[in-house]
Design a protein around this nucleic acid. Structure first.
Lengths: 229, 229
DNA sequence: TTCTCTATTGACCGAATCGGTTAATTATAT
DNA sequence: ATATAATTAACCGATTCGGTCAATAGAGAA
């Protein structure tokens, strides 16, 4: 649990500079376990219903606390939403910087590495991917501009996944196999695995991971020339 | 356009027996083009926001008509929702009965066939799959019971997709390849292709179809023993 | 025990939106 | 011009919205 402290310290810095001194301090002083429960409730709610259609009452109920307490912690619904966004952005960025190894050139190893990163992030907040995906399509005037600001300032952590596929070793493929097509398959595959229903337990994630390993190995064994296996 | 007349006739029968004489007649008498626009708006809205969080105003705006007109056509929000469900169920069932060929035993051909069916259904109502998927998770008390009734009465058109994978010819696979694993990959693959953002034009669907053909061929060519290619 | 201070909530606010109705307007056809 | 049908703007009471606040519950110090 100590691992997530880093993100919160970073986040406190950022938020305070933007929104002066805020009720957020109240939130940061409660036990991390309670923090997580509230954040996860918000991520699930915002992720499935978008900003507008998510009511603070819904989130409070899902978190098992009163609505008033959420306003005590975050001040406004908008502040809660943007806090979630910054938090997820930071977690994703930290996880990526910490675990991604650019020296891995093998096609499948790279993709597995990226999936591991996503899974690690989802172990912290299972609804994170669903939320971030919904942010991408969020169009409500009340938050649209601020989303842009945060995402561009954050250097767009998710764009890297695109870049991450580059510079891989495609000579290993059998003749007649189009690596781009394989890449498409793998993207669909990993997306499908991870963007499913957000209510996933730790066990589910581990099972998911193993299944993904199996699939990738299957493809690797049949798409690579024999000398590269 | 004449193809969809069948569904509506069937549906009229069903609905009238359940909900006596309803304002639905008004709806069925307007041009099919306008009907489609309203239904598609409802499917998108219900599919992305669920029953509760979808307001009739939202749907009316998306369909480019006034809210009052929707009540003129359907009477209540609930009736509109259930009409959508019955319509989609009928379309899916008809499409399946019409196109599915149980004599096709080849693993990949079967999956391609099922995807073709889904794509054909989505050409009629692009948001259909998204909506039906959301129905599966719908939990609102106002419609929950009626959903169960309709789905069980309709013989569960989507359960067949599970059955449809059975009885296929698995001897064609190379040794060491687990057909169940291949099946998992294909399910993820086709799901990923078809459950993406519902706002898809006809062109997108055709492109999607071609991409899917490519992927399936790639897998087939590398997973089957040579004598079966 | 009593006092204090803080964490938390139930009850409440005005405003907005909800599902649904209706009277009036527009378009159409004779 | 008139009768009829299609469509909507305006409205209804009820609910829910984001947000506030005074009251309560709870933990520690005395």
């Amino acid at each position: 649990m100590t691992e997530s402290v880093n993100y919160i310290i970073m986040l406190t810095d950022t938020v305070n500079t933007i929104y002066e001194v805020s009720p957020l301090e109240n939130f940061l002083n409660i036990p991390q376990e309670k923090q997580k429960k509230i954040i996860d409730a918000a991520l699930i709610c915002f992720g499935t219903n978008g900003y507008r259609k998510s009511s603070v009452s819904d989130i409070a109920t899902a978190a098992g606390i009163s609505k008033a307490l959420i306003f005590h912690y975050f001040g406004t619904k908008k502040a809660l939403y943007l806090y979630c966004l910054e938090l997820c952005g930071n977690i994703a960025m930290c996880e990526f910087n910490e675990k991604f190894d650019n020296s891995v050139t093998d096609f499948f190893d790279r993709i597995m590495l990226l999936s591991d990163i996503k899974i690690a992030a989802m172990k912290k907040h299972p609804a994170m991917l669903s939320f971030l995906n919904s942010v991408y399509f969020e169009n409500d005037d009340e938050v649209k501009a601020d989303i842009q600001t945060i995402l561009t300032n954050g250097q767009g952590g998710d764009l890297r996944t695109g870049i991450a596929f580059a510079c891989t070793d495609i000579a290993k493929f059998k003749d007649g196999i189009d690596p781009k097509l394989v890449m498409k398959i793998l993207i669909r595959l990993t997306d499908g695995y991870l963007s499913k229903i957000p209510v996933k337990t730790r066990i589910d994630l581990d099972a998911l991971h193993e299944e993904l390993v199996e699939c990738i190995n299957l493809l690797k064994n049949n798409f690579y020339k024999e000398q590269y296996l």
